[in-house]
């Protein structure tokens, strides 16, 4: 055997027919969304799964609490990755798959140049409200949303995306029947940097074009039926799926596991508000330090984000996974499952 033989063997295999994958674009776009979410989740102590986002040595702006897994009415797939006018993607009306009717009640924009802050005044009817955003990037400046007194009223948007992101708008009950002024602000609030040779090199801020809207929504008259859940993968690396618990929020708000040693948990949810369902862990009645938004599997590879914990091997620890939904969700239940993985 010579080096020449080795080269021939590798060429032989490398030059063989490679399988086509027509879904590659969509699957890459889904990964981009997940990486973005993990990066935003940095700072959620205890969730070691987010470490995957550090592979490129990137540390980001302070984490947000939201996930861009939202209803997608006739918007371009992120997979297209080709800029279009963002205003095209904020429709005046649309209906999500669970039958919720959305109606736009305000629209505005923050451009690449000029003010980084815009305000809109909206009527508050008492119906639930969402804020929507699409962005033509690149952009490092996702807008925050606040009321006149400066209080944040919405979960933060993720990174710049041409797919519409919807976030719940939290309005005090006393505001009903009156008007409310909202301010969208892209002023950079944190210090992101790229890690190069152990040194934090500040990121150059880049302004994108953000088109922003406020939507009022009317839930379905009866509780929608969340789609059935796909089965969680039977393995996560070398760990096997030992136990799965499922439920439907809000009827079922938690799941309890008895564990020993090193374990991992992964989650999966369905329903139009699946991305707004957040989990947190309690171990023997005490906060265990991990939380995150439920995984949503829209296609491609399973969006694995295992939360790992190490517990004593000589005694049983009771781990309780508790669910909480951001915003209002009348008649919009979310089906969830939690998988326990053990090596």
């Amino acid at each position: 055997m010579t080096v020449h033989d080795l080269r021939d063997v590798l060429r032989e295999h490398g030059d063989g027919p490679s399988p086509a994958n027509p879904a590659r674009h969509e699957e890459i776009a889904a990964r981009i969304r997940r990486i973005r979410l993990r990066r935003r989740a940095l700072g959620g102590g205890g969730v070691t799964a987010v470490a995957a986002a550090v592979a490129l040595g990137v540390s980001l702006l302070p984490g947000s609490l939201s996930r861009p897994t939202e209803p997608r009415p006739a918007t371009a797939s992120e997979a297209t990755l080709v800029p279009k006018q963002p205003a095209d993607f904020l429709p005046e009306r649309f209906t999500t798959s669970d039958g919720t009717k959305y109606r736009r009640i305000a629209i505005t924009a923050i451009k690449r140049a000029g003010p980084t802050k815009v305000s809109v005044t909206i009527p508050v009817s008492g119906k639930p409200l969402d804020v929507g955003a699409v962005c033509a990037g690149p952009s490092t400046d996702a807008p925050s949303v606040s009321t006149g007194d400066g209080r944040s009223t919405s979960a933060d948007f993720g990174g710049c995306s041409r797919s519409m992101q919807l976030r719940p708008l939290l309005v005090p009950a006393a505001t009903s029947g009156s008007k409310l002024t909202l301010t969208f602000n892209t002023t950079v609030r944190g210090g992101g940097c790229l890690m190069r040779n152990g040194t934090c090199v500040p990121r150059k801020p880049t302004r994108g074009l953000w088109s922003l809207a406020v939507y009022e929504w009317t839930p379905p008259a009866r509780p929608a039926e969340p789609p059935p859940l796909k089965a969680l993968p039977d393995h996560a690396g070398e760990a096997r799926l030992a136990e799965t618990k499922t439920g439907v929020w809000p009827q079922n708000g938690s799941a309890t596991f008895k564990v020993r040693g090193k374990v991992g948990f992964d989650t999966l949810c369905t329903g139009d508000l699946a991305g707004r369902l957040w989990f947190s862990f309690m171990a023997n009645g005490h906060p265990a330090g991990g939380s995150g938004s439920c995984g949503v599997w829209e296609g491609g590879a399973f969006p694995s984000a295992v939360s790992e914990f190490s517990y004593p091997t000589n005694k049983t620890t009771t781990v309780k996974v508790t669910w909480k939904l951001l915003g209002t969700a009348t008649n919009r239940p979310v089906r969830w499952s939690v998988g326990l993985y053990q090596k």
Partner: peptide, 25 residues
């Protein structure tokens, strides 16, 4: 890490058949 966070999708293409190779190769 071995404990991989990403798992291959169920619907990835099948492994194609390759030409037979010699034992040494």
């Amino acid at each position: 890490r071995r404990w991989r966070r990403e798992l291959p999708s169920d619907d990835l293409p099948d492994t194609p058949a390759s030409d037979p190779v010699s034992d040494d190769r």
